[in-house]
Amino acid sequence: MVSPTITAIIFDLGGVLIDWNPRHLYRKLITDEQEMTTFLDTITTPDWNEEQDAGRSLADGTAALVARHPQHRELIEHFYGRWSEMLGGAIQGTVDILTELRASQRYHLYALTNWSAETFPVAQAQFEFLNWFEGIVVSGTERMRKPTAEFYHLLLTRYGVEVQEAVFIDDNLRNIQAAQAIGLHTVHFQSPEQLRTELEAFGVLPAVR
């Protein structure tokens, strides 16, 4: 099989380069693991969080959820009030790969992320490698998000990326399938080691034996 010509690598951020997880915070607030899981799965749900990722203000999102679940006001308000405590650090193996790609000077490096416009600057201030990308498209700023096709096309158009020459990396299968539907090559991220192997297969990284 002939490897495609790749000129651009597009990274998701949370879960790929940055260990963002509400559990890092809520383990401090809810001592029972099952109770914490139930709260995150049924109250501060991923779908609710994605509304803020899509441009709704943190204040409006919090108020709407408190109105539905007033008995959980304090725990809900901590979601964004103590949001920085959900950042567990960099996923170093992936940062190492990004470092190699940057040093090679062979590829255009971009990021496409579902992230609130209000919390993204917190991560930017903490992680120096976020300054290495030629462009980062943030859903909260654009008021659209993955997996909508228009969000992917926004990055491709803005930076003149040919869809057949780009690899998109994301840990969310839903987002991978949407990327495949518009013709992007993809890596469904599971670990830095697996990512390295798949980038080697694309000919993006040299195979090391």
Rank of each mutant, 00 (worst) to 15 (best):
A59K: 13
T38Q: 12
L40P: 04
F39W: 06
T38H: 14
Q52P: 00
D47Q: 14
A67V: 05
A63G: 08
L58G: 01
N49T: 08
I43D: 10
M36T: 05
T62S: 12
G55C: 08
N49R: 06
D41R: 13
A54W: 04
P46I: 11
T37P: 00
E50D: 14
A59N: 07
E50S: 05
T37M: 00
T42F: 10
S57H: 09
N49H: 04
E51G: 02
G61A: 07
V66E: 03
A67Q: 14
L65E: 02
P46M: 10
V66L: 03
V66K: 06
E51S: 10
Q52K: 00
D53F: 01
R56E: 13
T44E: 05
E35W: 02
T38S: 12
T38M: 05
T37L: 03
D60R: 13
G61I: 04
N49Y: 05
L65C: 08
A64M: 09
T38C: 06
D60L: 10
W48H: 15
P46N: 10
D47V: 08
G55P: 08
T62H: 02
S57E: 07
L58W: 03
A67P: 07
L65Q: 02
Q52W: 00
L58E: 08
Q52R: 00
D53M: 03
L58T: 06
D60N: 11
P46T: 07
A64N: 11
E50H: 10
E50K: 11
G55K: 09
T37Q: 08
A59E: 14
T62F: 01
N49F: 08
L40A: 07
R56G: 00
D41N: 15
D47L: 10
T44D: 00
A54V: 00
D53S: 05
D53V: 06
E51A: 05
T45P: 11
N49P: 00
A67T: 11
A64G: 14
S57Y: 09
A63K: 13
D47I: 06
D60V: 10
A59R: 09
A59H: 08
L58P: 01
T45M: 07
F39P: 07
T44S: 11
D47F: 01
A54T: 07
V66T: 06
D41V: 01
T38D: 15
E35N: 12
D53A: 04
T37R: 08
T42N: 14
L58F: 01
D53H: 01
N49M: 06
D41E: 15
T37S: 03
F39G: 07
T38N: 13
T37A: 06
A64L: 13
G61K: 02
T37C: 00
T45I: 07
E35L: 13
F39N: 10
N49I: 01
S57M: 09
G61Q: 01
W48S: 04
Q52S: 01
F39V: 07
A64Y: 05
T42M: 13
T45F: 06
L40D: 05
W48V: 04
R56L: 14
A63Y: 00
A63T: 11
A54N: 13
M36V: 06
L65Y: 04
A67C: 04
I43T: 15
M36D: 05
T37V: 01
L65W: 03
I43H: 10
W48N: 04
I43C: 12
Q52F: 00
